[in-house]
Design a protein around this nucleic acid. Structure first.
Length: 408
DNA sequence: ATGTAC
């Protein structure tokens, strides 16, 4: 048994508390965290989750509490990226033996992959009609977006409504899972798509320009920050909160599509939201910690307040977990957002064979081709170790195993 | 992660 967290202390700056017992913690990620720890406005310490790995600017799997400042690159470009999961009244015996039809129905119901709704047959570039459910959902987002666009004209060139209800690519996925009592769950991972990306990129650039204007030296240019009280800070907060809402609603729209698609295939209705969780893991939030209101940026980390439910997905062949927060103040009420990568996408494609991928995804109705090897289970840390390393942050409520996986 | 340029 080891200590609950490892403390890394640089020459300058706040300590780093890392819940990395028995899991990989690359030197490069450590160095990146030491850079962040040097910033004078970091509150108390950095909390590092067991799925930690190197990111751009800020480290994936880190919790950065700040006073009077935010770092747009710490939130990143996939603003509001996160997970939604629903427990249904179905059990394994309600599903057909062959799951191909369910997978196809989901693939048809939710646009996924590049360009999503834009590409219909050979009509590349021509946007399809906006479906009714999407236009309804957009209505709650439109007013603030109109305001944002007026001032930040780069946002006019985004796909905004056209991407709402679409999954995206990379590690964004949809799964049908069974829990330990054979209840059927739907779970999906997605974010704020093109428009959130544009907002993130835009404000990261603006923050860098501000640093140059004020001649502020940073350990890493990507750590450019915006000070509270400035107009840019206010604009960023309005934009980032909007993108976080977009992402949450995006997941909600897709979940509803998945439910309807499966009901259609099974020719029956069922209760689809026996329990439901919808949580961000790339976001900034105003929170109260140790007696002060601070900004908490979670980049690849999930809120784990006492009693709060969260989702920690494993890779496409591994288990996932519905967890309940223990409200550990030292982690600023946080837990990991997944298993965390152990190798880059390019490395995975080089190192992992198709045979290995087939073995690792046995029994899962999913893609088995070369193009998906960057997402193969071997590219990720073993989820059981990651879970063990954060046993003082969360408890497991449900253990899920996927039977269908749709990758973007 | 994404859209776009190469």
């Amino acid at each position: 048994m080891c200590r609950k967290y490892e403390v890394v202390q640089g020459q300058k700056g706040v300590p780093i508390k890392a819940w990395t017992c028995d899991v990989a913690f690359e030197q490069a990620a450590k160095q990146q965290l030491l850079n962040i720890a040097q910033l004078p406005f970091v509150y108390k310490w950095l909390a590092v989750m067991p799925d930690v790995h190197l990111g751009k600017g800020a480290t994936i799997g880190s919790v950065v509490p700040t006073v009077d400042c935010v770092i747009p690159a710490a939130v990143g470009v996939d603003i509001g990226c996160g997970m939604i999961a629903c427990k249904t009244s179905l059990t394994a015996s309600d599903l057909p033996e062959h799951l191909g039809a369910i997978r196809s129905a989901i693939e048809q119901a939710v646009p996924h992959g590049r360009s999503a709704r834009a590409r219909k047959g050979r009509d590349k570039g021509a946007w399809g009609e906006i479906p009714h459910d999407v236009s309804c959902a957009w209505r709650t987002l439109a007013p603030v977006f109109d305001q944002l666009q007026e001032k930040h004209t780069v946002l006019r060139q985004t796909n905004n409504v056209n991407h709402l209800g679409t999954l995206g690519t990379g590690n964004h996925f949809i799964e049908v899972c069974l829990d330990e009592k054979d209840s059927v769950w739907f779970m999906l991972h997605s974010g704020s798509r093109g428009v959130g990306n544009r907002i993130g990129t835009h404000f990261i650039e603006l923050a860098k320009k501000e640093m140059e204007r004020w001649q502020i030296q940073l350990p890493d240019r990507d750590l450019a920050y915006l000070p509270e009280g400035s107009e840019l800070f206010a604009d960023y907060m309005q934009s980032v909160v909007w993108a976080q809402n977009y992402a949450r609603i995006n997941r909600e729209v897709m979940m509803q599509r998945v439910i309807q698609a499966v009901q259609k295939v099974l020719h029956r209705t069922f209760e689809a939201r026996v329990e439901a969780v919808n949580c961000h893991h790339n976001y900034v939030n105003r929170e109260h910690h140790y007696g002060n209101d601070v900004w908490v940026t979670r980049k690849g980390a999930v809120s784990a307040k006492e009693g709060q439910l969260g989702i920690i997905p494993g890779s496409m062949g591994a288990k996932s977990f519905i967890v309940r927060g223990k409200g550990n103040p030292e982690s600023f009420h946080s837990c990991s957002h997944g298993a965390g990568r152990v190798m880059s996408r390019t490395q995975a494609k080089k190192v992992v064979s198709l045979a290995e991928h087939l073995a690792a995804t046995q029994g899962v109705e999913c893609r088995k081709d070369e193009a998906v090897i960057d997402e193969t289970p071997a590219a990720y840390k073993p989820i059981d170790k990651v879970m063990a390393a954060q046993s003082d942050l969360i408890e497991v409520v449900y253990t899920l195993k996927q039977i269908v996986c749709v990758k973007g």
